[in-house]
Design a protein around this nucleic acid. Structure first.
Lengths: 213, 213
DNA sequence: GCCGATATCCCCCGGCCGGGGGAGGGGGCG
DNA sequence: CGCCCCCTCCCCCGGCCGGGGGATATCGGC
């Protein structure tokens, strides 16, 4: 059945954990650990060069942490699937991990069977969670709007035009006001969304449910 | 490795689908189809008497449907895991299925490999979804279109970082290249997307399905 | 071997943008 | 009546951006 073994990259700052994972995974004929990374930066670099099918990524790592590393890994051309591994279930990383695009989330206390199963599952392109994580997800789901910054009507209007890629001058023309006015509104929006520039404002505004793209 | 095979109950109103599933699953030495049900009521009854480890449950069934049957099955003493199977991904059943306690959600168009993997995954007590379902859960968002401009891998990578609101200098640092290089890539992206600036590039790239926000 | 595509680096320059101020008028609310 | 928020307009300035040129190296295909 194993046409060609699933190539796995293990990223964890503890050598002991890496060795343990390697032992467990290499024991399976259809799995092959092709590399180990001790921090996030290494993980990204090895993912780029080794081109594994699956990356087992620890969340807590020195320097570039697992989540950031996951983001970067998934931006690689033809990226691997990322299976995020963590120690505690309620550290709030689950949602973040899935948001940045991880394919699965596994607890370190999981047994060898589950670990092996998890790698196979994400390898075929499916997503995997532990049951508690699913419940957390379902419960925390309608969070799209809550906690969103409060923009004035005019500010929302301006933001939506910014999101259309219009310059301040064009927005001014569209709204029949001065460019200075638009500049002021944009400045308010940037401050409220804690965005550095209009590009960030568009992305953050979209994620906060303030604009539709 | 398979101490004792995973006992599976298949519930689907179409005999053809049941036979197909039985063929696929019984071909695996560690899986064993112990029964078939043609509707929800039968599924519940067989789950009670056969005590399978996993129930593959179709959503659409005459009489008691898959979701209701899932609820009932999970109320049995020492209940099996339920893997919900459906044809369409956007029928809104995902959330309902997870809410009533299903362990996983699988599309019928999934290949045999995925099907087998899915059963094994839920058998060891983990939850499973197809990636699209996770994205829907994390953030209900419409999907991308076709006819997207052709960007090189590096250009896509740069664009995704632009979509994070990063400046050219920051992108250069992240990718460990010179700022000049990033400027070149950004220029190519702008030209190909026919965008005037990076903000338009993000919006157009998102609408073309080239970047995730 | 040649050529195209890709990726990397370099320079100049005009322009829009964003930060930091300030200032006036109108409307709601105590 | 005052206060505060919203909308409106104004000035200066530093910085990043985007357009216009080129240049070199590697890789793959014909």
């Amino acid at each position: 059945m194993p046409d060609t073994p699933v190539r796995v990259l293990v990223a964890d700052d503890e050598p002991l954990v890496r060795s343990g994972l390697r032992l467990i995974l290499d024991a399976e004929p259809d799995l092959e650990v092709v590399g180990e990374a001790g921090d996030g930066a290494q993980a990204v670099e090895l993912a780029r060069t080794l081109r594994p099918d699956v990356v087992c990524m620890d969340v807590r790592m020195p320097g570039v942490d697992g989540l950031r590393a996951t983001e970067l890994v998934l931006r690689l051309p033809d990226p691997p699937r990322v299976l995020v591994v963590t120690t505690f279930e309620h550290d709030g990383y689950v949602l973040d991990a899935l948001t940045v695009g991880a394919s699965g989330f596994l607890l370190k206390r999981a047994g060898a069977d589950e670990m092996v199963q998890a790698v196979r599952t994400v390898a075929v392109g499916q997503s995997l969670l532990y049951p508690q994580a699913v419940r957390d997800l379902v419960r925390a789901r309608p969070r799209a709007k809550t906690g969103a910054p409060v923009l004035t009507p005019r500010e929302r209007e301006v933001l939506s035009l910014v999101a259309e890629g219009m310059t301040n001058a064009e927005i001014a023309t569209a709204l029949v006001v001065g460019v200075e006015t638009v500049r002021t509104h944009v400045a308010s929006v940037l401050a409220k969304l804690q965005a550095r520039d209009r590009t960030q404002a568009v992305v953050l505004g979209y994620r906060a449910g303030l604009v539709d793209l």
